[in-house]
């Protein structure tokens, strides 16, 4: 009998990704060497983009997101004349992943943008008070375009984007504006000799998030379902192999929860594909996720520095 050719790890990983992962998880370790509750190294740089009024660059393992805020003067909404607007958007640039397609924003990008919008606009825990953006009641207000561009995508893009958005808001400096009878003048450094003073915004709440990939554990000896594996800060490979994900957002200021969502195991470039065939979330898993998310939030808050 001829000997089978020896298969390398990468071939095995490619052909049997689920089995490959399962062997690792049985040993409570992940293919990239992390423990299950271990996040990837996270780096945050604020003020990297000089053309933006506020900016931040986040690297979470292989995921890189750059966020820039552009402030424009606009008209307040019709129903509330003493507030401004914030317009968050997440763009998955075609550069970020081989499967990302050029063209209009994918469903995935739109859904992500909406989720980030829901967090930033939360009426009960607003990050910034929209009233702070009012320039002149009913006439003029600030419009903050918060654009996050994902340059490299390797899982947990919501976490990176949210951290980047919060950091960019912290980094934001609004120029002085003079409202003068229907016209708004933004104090311009070219007019005067010295740079006019710019003001930072108060951040009232601090939403910090954690993603989890939940993979059911099979106990081979007893064949009974034990508590599932919970992978903090999953990579794209891990997101693709799971049937469900959990996104937990907490407010680092009040230590209360802002959002919990169950997300389908789903990735960019596979818009109409369904990967899941089952899976539910139990309160046990949620409780564990919350406690891990709390730890992660403490770490992320330290990255953001003082408030």
């Amino acid at each position: 009998m001829t000997a089978l050719p020896e298969l390398s790890f990468s071939v095995f990983q490619r052909l049997q990704p689920a089995e490959y992962q399962k062997r690792f998880l049985a040993q409570h370790v992940r293919p990239d060497g992390r423990g299950l509750d271990e996040a990837r190294p996270t780096a945050l740089t604020m003020g990297a983009i000089s053309t933006a009024d506020g900016s931040a660059l986040v690297r979470m393992g292989g995921t890189t997101v750059v966020v820039g805020i552009k402030a424009e003067v606009g008209v307040p909404p019709m129903d509330r004349d003493n507030v401004g607007w914030i317009v968050p958007n997440l763009e998955l640039a075609p550069i970020c992943h081989p499967s990302a397609r050029p063209g209009p924003p994918s469903t995935f990008a739109q859904v992500c943008s909406h989720r980030l919008y829901e967090i930033l606009i939360n009426e009960n825990a607003p990050v910034i008070d929209l009233k702070d953006l009012c320039v002149e009641q009913g006439k003029a207000c600030w419009v903050l375009h918060i654009d996050a561009v994902c340059l490299a995508l390797d899982g947990s893009v919501l976490d990176a984007a949210l951290l980047g958005m919060v950091a960019a808001l912290k980094n934001l400096r609004l120029p002085e504006v003079i409202y003068d009878d229907e016209t708004v003048t933004v104090a311009n450094p070219e007019d005067g000799q010295e740079e006019p003073p710019k003001t930072a915004l108060n951040l009232h709440h601090l939403p910090l998030s954690s993603s989890f990939a939940i993979i059911p554990a099979e106990d081979t000896r007893t064949s009974s379902a034990s508590s599932p594996h919970m992978l903090l800060d999953p990579t794209t490979d891990e997101e693709e192999l799971t049937e469900q994900r959990l996104w937990v957002v907490l407010d680092a200021k009040s230590e209360e929860l802002l959002c919990i969502q169950r997300l389908a195991g789903w990735v960019e470039g596979a818009d109409a594909r369904c990967t899941g065939t089952g899976g539910t979330v139990s309160m046990d898993v949620i409780k564990k996720a919350i406690s891990q998310a709390k730890e992660r939030a403490t770490y992320l808050q330290a990255l953001l520095g003082d408030f």
């Binding site: 820039g68 805020i69 075609p94 654009d147 561009v149």
Partner: peptide
């Protein structure tokens, strides 16, 4: 594929693609 970030220049670009 050429893509320009909305915050890349002095004025915010409204349509960055296409």
């Amino acid at each position: 594929e050429f893509n320009i970030a909305p915050f890349s220049a002095g004025e915010r670009r409204k349509r960055t693609k296409g």
